[in-house]
Simulated assay, not measured.
Amino acid sequence: MPIDPVPTGPVTTEPRGFVSGPDQHEQLLAVLTEAGVELGEYDHRIVEWLTRSPGQDWGTVATIASWVKRAGTPNP
């Protein structure tokens, strides 16, 4: 199954695919860093929990990452 990238616009369907916990972790941290979000120790704990705890899937992480990307992008 192809992996949908982090959406750059409104999410109308669940992003598809399987992305391992470590890869989700890396991608979410990259989006937060790109957006200029400074992370504290607890922030890192939550990123860890979100991306590595059982039950979290790519659709959830990709949607949250999409929110971060879109929040930092001015509307046309």
Results as ranks from 00 to 15, higher is better:
residue 75 N to S: 13
residue 41 E to N: 06
residue 67 W to Q: 10
residue 75 N to G: 05
residue 26 E to M: 04
residue 66 S to G: 15
residue 23 D to N: 09
residue 74 P to H: 06
residue 7 P to L: 07
residue 76 P to K: 08
residue 55 G to S: 08
residue 33 T to W: 01
residue 52 R to H: 14
residue 52 R to S: 12
residue 2 P to D: 08
residue 7 P to W: 03
residue 53 S to L: 09
residue 35 A to Q: 14
residue 67 W to A: 09
residue 74 P to K: 11
residue 9 G to I: 09
residue 14 E to D: 14
residue 75 N to A: 15
residue 69 K to A: 05
residue 44 H to I: 10
residue 15 P to Q: 12
residue 30 A to K: 06
residue 36 G to L: 04
residue 23 D to S: 13
residue 7 P to R: 06
residue 20 S to R: 10
residue 35 A to E: 10
residue 56 Q to Y: 12
residue 64 I to L: 15
residue 46 I to N: 05
residue 56 Q to V: 06
residue 69 K to C: 04
residue 22 P to K: 06
residue 63 T to N: 09
residue 17 G to A: 11
residue 25 H to L: 12
residue 61 V to N: 11
residue 35 A to F: 04
residue 20 S to Q: 06
residue 58 W to M: 05
residue 17 G to F: 11
residue 8 T to P: 02
residue 20 S to K: 06
residue 18 F to Q: 12
residue 52 R to L: 12
residue 35 A to C: 05
residue 4 D to W: 05
residue 1 M to F: 04
residue 4 D to G: 08
residue 72 G to C: 09
residue 5 P to S: 04
residue 57 D to R: 14
residue 20 S to Y: 03
residue 73 T to G: 02
residue 62 A to F: 08
residue 20 S to G: 10
residue 43 D to C: 01
residue 66 S to Y: 04
residue 31 V to C: 00
residue 37 V to I: 13
residue 75 N to L: 14
residue 72 G to R: 13
residue 51 T to C: 15
residue 11 V to I: 12
residue 72 G to E: 09
residue 24 Q to S: 11
residue 18 F to I: 13
residue 33 T to I: 02
residue 4 D to F: 03
residue 14 E to F: 02
residue 10 P to L: 06
residue 65 A to R: 02
residue 49 W to L: 13
residue 33 T to E: 15
residue 27 Q to H: 01
residue 71 A to N: 08
residue 74 P to L: 12
residue 6 V to M: 02
residue 2 P to H: 11
residue 23 D to K: 12
residue 2 P to K: 11
residue 57 D to P: 00
residue 72 G to M: 04
residue 47 V to C: 04
residue 33 T to Y: 01
residue 46 I to Y: 11
residue 13 T to Y: 12
residue 1 M to Y: 08
residue 20 S to P: 00
residue 65 A to H: 00
residue 28 L to N: 01
residue 42 Y to N: 10
residue 29 L to G: 04
residue 63 T to E: 07
residue 21 G to M: 01
residue 3 I to E: 05
residue 71 A to W: 11
residue 16 R to Y: 02
residue 66 S to T: 01
residue 47 V to K: 01
residue 36 G to M: 03
residue 15 P to D: 10
residue 44 H to L: 15
